[in-house]
Simulated assay, not measured.
Amino acid sequence: MRILIVDDEAPARRRLQDLLAETAPEAAVVGEAADGASALLAWAETRPDLVLLDIRMPLMDGLETARELARMDEPPAVVFVTAYDEHALAAFDLNAVDYLLKPVRKERLALALGKARRFGAERWEQLQRDLPAAPRSHICVRQQGNLRLIPLEEIRCFSADMKYTTLYTAKEEALIDDSLKSLEEEFPDRFLRVHRNALVALAHIVALEKSPAGTLRVRLAGLAEPVEVSRRHASAARQRLRRLEHERGARTP
């Protein structure tokens, strides 16, 4: 079994290394990571069978990391490792492969490894459905077999063309697997639907303006080209932007 250890504390990672050496000497630790974003990159490089995943970490926590892993082709089994008590983890008892409470004991680690060996695709699908659907902080981009994570706050807009969705930042554009509908449902407070083919980031809206042809469009910070607003979405866009201006004014001292 190939194992990736993910924990933001180096002593905790070393302890798991030592316990694995005692409990499962046939297992190979193929990598370590100190946060969820690094864990996804390490997964892409090492393709482990099992990820021992801490829950509370900086940048991207274990739950968000697990959701991203569930989207991958041939995802690994995941065992959560946490300092939370059993009552706080009751929600994961039937859905995750297993969870280990810190300090991890050898007997529990051995039991978790046994469950991981029996883990299959059907359980991953169940885990993906049942994990709490908290919004992501990053969008995962897959390019030529590599993974990159783009922070949500850098994204200016999403645009759809046929089956493809493209995200735009001030510096780049990238194809992603998510549909506009799923993105709109996941981030209702951060992105506004302005066209059947476009979502724009509320935080980066500079102005709502008319084009020389008389159509409405949104200008976004960092993007040279404005985004067209369809007639169907124009009224809702105006109302939302008026509320946004009011909120921004209320926050200004």
Rank of each mutant, 00 (worst) to 15 (best):
M1H: 12
R2N: 12
I5Y: 05
I5F: 08
I5Q: 07
V6Y: 04
D7V: 06
Q17E: 10
E26S: 10
V30S: 00
V30W: 00
A34D: 10
S38D: 14
A42M: 04
A42V: 01
A44M: 01
E45H: 03
R47T: 10
D49W: 03
D54W: 12
I55S: 09
M57H: 14
M60Q: 11
D61W: 09
D61V: 06
L63H: 00
E64Q: 14
E64H: 00
A66M: 12
A66R: 11
R71H: 13
D73G: 13
E74M: 13
P75G: 01
P76T: 09
A77F: 01
V78L: 09
V78A: 12
F80N: 02
T82Q: 06
A83C: 14
A83Y: 09
A88Y: 02
A88N: 04
A90L: 14
A91D: 11
A91I: 09
N95E: 06
N95W: 03
L100A: 06
V104I: 05
L109Q: 02
A110T: 08
A110Y: 03
G114W: 03
G114F: 04
K115A: 03
A116Q: 08
R118N: 09
F119S: 14
W124H: 03
W124T: 10
Q126P: 00
R129G: 00
D130W: 13
S137G: 13
S137R: 15
H138W: 04
V141G: 01
V141Q: 02
R142M: 01
Q144D: 15
G145V: 02
G145H: 07
N146W: 00
R148V: 02
R148L: 04
L149Y: 08
I150V: 15
L152S: 04
L152H: 01
E153P: 02
E153L: 05
E154K: 12
E154L: 09
R156T: 05
C157S: 11
D161N: 06
D161F: 08
M162C: 11
T165C: 10
E172Q: 14
E173N: 15
L175E: 14
L175V: 14
D178M: 08
S179C: 13
L183I: 03
F187A: 07
R190G: 13
R190E: 13
F191Y: 14
F191A: 10
L192C: 07
L199F: 11
V200D: 03
A201P: 05
A203I: 02
A203M: 02
V206C: 07
L208K: 04
K210E: 15
K210V: 10
R219E: 14
E225S: 12
P226G: 12
S230V: 09
R231E: 11
R231I: 01
R232T: 11
R232A: 08
S235I: 06
A236G: 04
A237Y: 00
A237G: 00
A237I: 02
Q239C: 07
R240H: 00
L241Q: 09
R242H: 02
R243G: 12
R243I: 01
E245H: 03
H246V: 10
H246A: 15
R248P: 01
G249M: 07
A250D: 14
R251K: 07
